Simulated scan of single mutants.
Amino acid sequence: MRADRVLAYGATAGLLGDLLLGDPRRGHPVAAFGRAAGSVERLLWRDHRGWGALHTTVCAGGALGAAALASRALRHSPAASVALTAATTWAVLGGTSLGREARAVGSALEAGDLDVARERLPHLCGRDPQALDGPGIARAVVESVAENTSDAVVGALVWGAVGGVPGLVGFRAVNTLDAMVGHKSAKYRRYGWASARLDDVAGWPGARLTAALGVVAGGDPRGALRAWRADASKHPSPNAGPVEASFAGALGVRLGGTLSYGGRVEHRPVLNTEGRTIEVGDIERAVRLSRRVGALALGASVAGRLGAAALRRRTRRRGGAS
């Protein structure tokens, strides 16, 4: 079986597995990688970019190498290759868990229970929940759903289309390292620099595809495209900006504004200034938009892999004929 078909069957099965099963409660491979990366950090940490770059290389390179070896070992067995691709896709995707956590916060807000909503919010993002009221929590959830649609679904599928199982694993490793050490705290400002920059590079194509699919899948394509063009560059993150702006326009709401991370207050520009104030019901709308974007991303990634393979075969035939 050709590699492009392995990706098509395996990634589809993996996405269905995520939709049906979500993340496992225990023994998640990504959590195991995080524990291993934490152990490496305890050995290597210095307040220095070079040591942080070594940490990134050891952890991401190790995960990528292990995935490449596994793929190579199974390359002569189509069934095993499809199974490995499916299992890896299921392990690295997090769309179902993302939607589940977002809806849990939304249900608490609808019930008027701010304490529970604040308790659940850290499952989605690193903001200070005690500093947020109901609308602030709803905005944080929608922004997190938008950004993580790219990080936890689309970006992985894009790199899976490019590099198969190693691409899937490598992207998730880089994204996990960024979440662990890539933030601008005093401890990680230098040590996490390499992980943060590598995540910016790895996340670039998935973020643009997520934003484009948000335009296609949302309820207001013109609004999503307008917000993306007008406001994405105002966001401090080169990848979160396009995604959050596109989702804001597609949902017809305003995102951005003042927020707090670890006691540090940030004043971010408003995305989609023509939108309305966000409401609790927009959380469910954002989750549904995320699901549609994920399904379209699977189709786009598989189509891209099949199309690239067909083009290579056609080029080889023409070269042989000449």
Rank of each mutant, 00 (worst) to 15 (best):
A3G: 12
R5S: 08
T12L: 10
G27M: 09
V30G: 04
V40M: 08
V40A: 06
L43W: 13
G50I: 05
W51P: 14
H55G: 10
C59F: 05
G65V: 03
G65A: 13
A86Y: 04
A87F: 13
T89C: 12
L93M: 10
G95I: 03
E101M: 07
A104M: 10
A104H: 05
E110N: 13
G112W: 00
R118S: 13
E119G: 13
P122I: 00
H123V: 06
C125I: 00
Q130Y: 09
D133M: 05
G134C: 09
V142F: 04
N148C: 08
G155I: 05
W159I: 05
G170F: 02
F171L: 05
L177I: 06
A202C: 15
A202M: 07
P205I: 02
G206T: 01
L209H: 07
G219I: 07
R222L: 15
G223V: 04
D231M: 07
K234W: 12
P238T: 05
N239L: 06
A240D: 06
G241Q: 01
V243Q: 00
S246Y: 04
G252A: 11
G262W: 14
G263V: 08
V265W: 07
V265D: 04
R268T: 03
P269E: 09
P269Q: 08
I278S: 06
E279P: 09
A286M: 10
V287T: 03
R291T: 09
G294N: 06
A297W: 10
G299M: 15
A300M: 12
L311K: 08
R318W: 15
